[in-house]
Amino acid sequence: MVSHDDVIQIARLAKLSIKEDELDALTGEMQNIIDFADTINSAAESGEAFDNINNLSNVFHDDVVIPSYPTEKILENAKDVADDCFLVKKRCD
């Protein structure tokens, strides 16, 4: 059973805020989806070991420096920037 507390805890981990009035509906919805996901636990077999899809290994980059991007480019898409840094203000009203 998925409880309100479960949903609150999961939302906290996922950094999503849930309003009080959404909680009932969301808990029910989550319960349905989890029940659906749970059907895999009716599988008799425990399954095969799975690695990565094409069993690839040892893909590396060489330790050679490539020039970084200009700072203006790096910061270009940020809403708030100060002193060449990304900025999160203490609070914003």
Partner: peptide
């Protein structure tokens, strides 16, 4: 274990 890991194992089964 009950979800992600199990699903990953069943993925192996489907691949096979």
């Amino acid at each position: 274990d009950a979800y992600y890991k199990k699903a990953q194992n069943l993925r192996g089964t489907i691949v096979k």
